[in-house]
Structure formats: structure tokens, C-alpha cells
Simulated scan of single mutants.
Amino acid sequence: MGRLNRRDAWGGAMSESVPVRCPACRREHVYTAPAYPCACGAPVTPSLDGTAAPTPVAHRAWDEDWVTVSCGSCGRRDQWPQPELGCPCGAVLRVPVAGTDSAPAPGPEPRPPFQPVTIRTARDVVTAAALYLRWLGYRDIRRADQRPPSGIGLAARGLVAQVDPTVRPASLRDVECLWLTAMTEDSGCVYFSLAGYADDARDRADALGIPLFVLDLTGTPQPVNELADDLNASGAV
């Protein structure tokens, strides 16, 4: 299959496109690789494998939802969402990505402006939270070992996070369960909710030292309490 290039949202860098044929209905699409912001400020796009066929997504597995991509500017290797295409026939197709060999560049860089991912699905909520944690400076973001009572648990070095993509405000119990999990892991914690928080949950989070964020539909986490404001300003320390 051939390849196309398109200019991405940052301007200057090019996003890669390949033809993708749905194996279910045989309809052909042109898929454009998404661009994500590296810590150095440059846009990162996965290298698509135009010779491999897409695979339908039958079930979700955290390891299969992410792919390691190297930044072409600084060489940093980070995990980004696996490229996927939704076909009108209902199939969700995982677009193959070519391997990369670049090594990460050492040393800290200043944070560029956060680039959100528009929220359309529950998966987008989790992706937006993971991208925000990476923007804050957390590394090795993965699915948490302990599953929370509601939502999705994420973990990074020194942090556990709960992401609630439902339309129900997070409850007092949700906040306390996250805190107990963090105590067990001897780490900090943070909560992301799509629908906000009950009043007693906010009060308890303040008392326990838990930053609370609400995700708007642009995919941008909005601080709910002062602890979240401080984390947004300082990043991972």
C-alpha cells in the first residue's frame, strides 16, 4: 500500500497516512497517524506499517492499547496510544506500527503546553488522563495491578491514579479506596473524573491530600481542589 503525508496541528512536522482496508466489509479508508507532544515540545507520530494488514479489536488489553514510539527530534522513547480506526460497519481496526530503534535522550526538558485528546469514548478518558500524567513528568504509566471499585486504575513511578469515565460523580468511598490503595503501594495518588465529585468526596480528598481533576470533553484535566492546582503547576517531583 502507498503512503501519504499530511501536516499536523503543530505545523511543520508531517503526519503519516496509509490506506487501510477493513477485513470485515472490505471498505478502504485513508488513515492518518495521530501526533502527540513529546516532552521536548516536538510532535511525535508513530511510523505506520503500510505493508501489514489491520487487525480487528475483539477485546481490550492494556498492553495492546499502547505502543512505544521514538521522538524524531530528541530520541526519547515513550508509550502512546496504539493507532486505531473505526469503520462505519462497526469494526474497530488496530493499524500496524513499524518498529523503532532510537534511544532516549537523557536529561530533563521544560514542559511544553499540554495537548489534549478530544473525548468521545471511555477509552479516550483513560488516554487523556495517561497523557496528562506523562505531561506532568510521570513515567512508566501502565494499568494498575489493583482494580479500583469503579473506573480504571493507572500506575506510574511513585503514583497511583483512578480514572472514572462514567457519568456518576465520584463518591466518598471512591476517594477513600484510592487513598487506601496508595497507602498500600507507598505512593501518592490522584483522581480523574468525567462527572465531578460529591461534596463529601471533595472534602475527604482535601483532608487526605488527594488532587482531584475533572476531565472536560476537550480532554483537558481541570483542577478541582488546591492540591490539583499545585500538581498542575509543579508537575511530578
Rank of each mutant, 00 (worst) to 15 (best):
R139V: 06
V125I: 04
A155M: 10
P149W: 04
D124H: 15
P113H: 03
R134T: 10
S150Y: 08
V126S: 14
R123G: 13
A128Q: 11
A130Y: 11
L131S: 14
A130H: 11
A156R: 02
E109V: 14
P149R: 08
P148H: 07
R157A: 12
A161N: 09
A129H: 08
P113W: 03
L136Q: 10
L136W: 06
G153H: 05
P108R: 00
L133I: 08
R134K: 10
R139Y: 00
P148V: 07
T127D: 06
A128E: 10
R147E: 14
V117R: 15
I119T: 06
D140S: 14
R139T: 14
P110E: 01
T118C: 04
G107N: 02
G153R: 04
S150A: 15
D124Q: 12
Y138I: 01
Q115G: 07
Y138M: 04
A156Y: 01
L154E: 12
G158H: 02
P108I: 01
R142P: 01
Q115V: 12
I119G: 06
G107L: 03
T121D: 03
R134V: 01
T118R: 13
T121W: 00
R157D: 15
A156G: 14
T121I: 00
Y132W: 15
S150H: 13
A128V: 10
P108N: 02
A155P: 08
S150F: 11
T127S: 05
Y138H: 15
I152T: 15
L131I: 10
Q115M: 09
I152V: 15
G153N: 04
F114A: 07
A122T: 12
E109L: 10
P148L: 07
